Computed example of a mutant assay.
Amino acid sequence: MTHSLFQKMGAPPIDVAQVTSAPPVRTEVTWDDRDVRLYHLALGAGVPETDERELAYVYERHARGLAVLPTFGTVAGGTGGIGFQVFDLPGVHLDLAQALHGGQEITVHRPLPAAARATAVTHVPAVYDKGRAAVLVQESTLLDEDERPLLTQRNHIFVQGAGGFGGDRGPSDPTPVPDRAPDHLFDLPTMRQQALLYRLTGDWNPLHADPTTARTAGYDRPILHGLCTFGMAVKAVTDRLLRSDPTRVTGCRTRFAGVFFPGETLRLHLWHHPDGHGYLLRATAPDRDDAVVLSHAAITVR
């Protein structure tokens, strides 16, 4: 998902002290198996339609129960991403028009159920100073009805023109991929209408549907949501390396390094993590000379 932000008149874009000290925002979140099935279909699940492993993602009466990918948590409740309440927080004076969803991290505390009433608790633990830009880190923990954490996600929002305030630059880059051929290479086809389908999970940004908006942003046609490509990558690793068991995924992260167009092939380059508990990942678009789409990505497993 790509967003843009224009600074509101008469106020600095981010008051770091105010936004990082603001009390958490609590948002009620509900979902059912229809939401889960729609999300998986938007990732391309259900092909072939007779494969039992694929049916586990899309058929509510599956013998093993409905599988739920942890990345479903990013759209739980139909909000287009839990935790994107940052624009309503004290100290943030932005409106949607020019900012970038630069990265995503997810920590799984327990597997997501196929239906639930939950609460998203959101705050901003840090704003990093990158010079001309700032990276606002928004953390949201999804709690079940007993206030037990299900998952925690961190959205990294890149805001051009909001840096230079003398703050911390943030942590160094995570483990880089090895300088050798990948251990696994997967090619994933995508549908030309995939962005239109993924929008039904709650992200209505016209950049993913309206050709005029896309051209204004510099693209010849609408682009696919970054969270969709990331969800596809996590699903592929789950299916091909974890025996289609999403409960084995304990966490995942990525940077959204480049655009991806619906209908292209998504190529996953995977290396075994040095600690033996997961995979390092890079995703590219082979239709465009392997342009990088996802970088600094990792999936941790049990």
Rank of each mutant, 00 (worst) to 15 (best):
R53S: 14
L143F: 13
G167H: 09
F261K: 00
F84R: 13
H40M: 02
I223W: 03
H40I: 02
P262S: 02
R180L: 04
G77I: 01
A214V: 04
Y219R: 06
Q138H: 03
N205G: 04
Y57D: 04
A115V: 00
P206R: 04
L268N: 03
L142F: 07
A115F: 00
R110P: 06
V36G: 05
R110D: 06
Q85L: 07
G77R: 04
D290T: 12
P149E: 11
A126W: 09
W271G: 02
A291L: 15
S172R: 08
P171A: 08
L142I: 12
A42E: 01
G263W: 00
R282D: 10
G81I: 06
I157A: 07
G166C: 10
Q194L: 08
N155G: 15
L294C: 12
A285V: 14
N205Y: 00
V237P: 00
D144K: 05
W271I: 07
R267P: 02
G77C: 05
H296G: 10
F230C: 02
V108L: 05
A233G: 01
Y219C: 04
G81A: 04
A76C: 09
L151D: 01
F158K: 02
G166F: 10
A283K: 08
R26M: 14
L43E: 10
L294T: 07
R199H: 10
G83V: 11
R169H: 13
H277K: 14
V29A: 02
E54V: 03
R37N: 07
V47M: 12
D51A: 07
H273A: 15
Q153K: 04
G77E: 06
L66P: 03
N155E: 11
H3Q: 10
L41K: 01
S295L: 07
D287G: 11
C228W: 06
D51V: 02
R255Q: 13
L89D: 03
L281E: 07
D220R: 12
A209R: 01
A126I: 05
M9G: 13
A291V: 15
A126V: 06
L185N: 03
V16A: 00
A298N: 05
G161I: 12
Y128L: 12
A257E: 09
D15R: 09
L136T: 09
V135W: 11
E139I: 14
P13H: 00
M191T: 13
R288E: 15
A181Y: 12
A115T: 01
H269A: 12
E264L: 08
E105Y: 05
Y279H: 15
A233C: 03
G131A: 10
T152V: 10
R154G: 13
I223S: 04
R243H: 15
L41D: 00
L280N: 01
E264V: 00
R154P: 13
L136Y: 08
M191W: 14
V259R: 06
P111A: 13
G102M: 04
T229V: 11
V19D: 04
F230M: 12
S244F: 01
I14A: 04
V16H: 01
V237N: 03
T229K: 06
